[in-house]
């Protein structure tokens, strides 16, 4: 038996490939929302839009329907440079043996106030 749940988790197989896209697809944009003054813009999600102006308007309608933000950024997804997840060990320095970078490393002053 196949199909039927809202979540699509119903046992059927993935759809077969369809015909090729004729229209050039709209570019992808990443949306960042500042939820209130004093806070950073935080990544909310992404959307498609033909240009920056439409991307901003779509972002407003899609990610701030309930007053979630006071400011929006939209950034072309293609402009984002990411680190390579498979090169994790080489890229991010190992924290091993570097406890001295944390305040909790210094225990001799225990009991001294406001330190």
């Amino acid at each position: 038996m196949t199909g039927g749940s809202t979540t699509g988790d119903d046992g059927s197989t993935a759809p077969a490939p369809g015909p090729a896209e004729k229209r050039q697809p709209w570019p992808l944009w990443e949306v960042f929302v500042r939820s209130s003054r004093g806070l950073s813009h935080v990544h909310a999600g992404s959307l498609h839009a033909p240009d920056a102006d439409m991307a901003l308007r779509n972002a407003r309608d899609l990610y701030t329907r309930r007053n979630e933000g006071v400011s929006l950024w939209v950034v072309p997804s293609s402009a984002i440079i990411t680190s390579d997840p498979s090169a994790k060990e080489q890229f991010f320095e190992s924290p091993q043996g570097k406890d001295y970078r944390h305040a909790t490393y210094y225990t001799k002053s225990e009991g001294v106030k406001h330190l």
């Binding site: 699509g8 119903d10 059927s12 369809g18 015909p19 229209r23 697809p25 992404s46």
Partner: peptide, 30 residues
Amino acid sequence: LYLYSAAETLGTPRDKMTEDLIAGKARYSS
């Protein structure tokens, strides 16, 4: 739209998913 975005990160473009739905190749909740 949130969900199409999530699905797109797996490599299938949104327009392709829309095409599949319209062509009757994709399912939705009964």
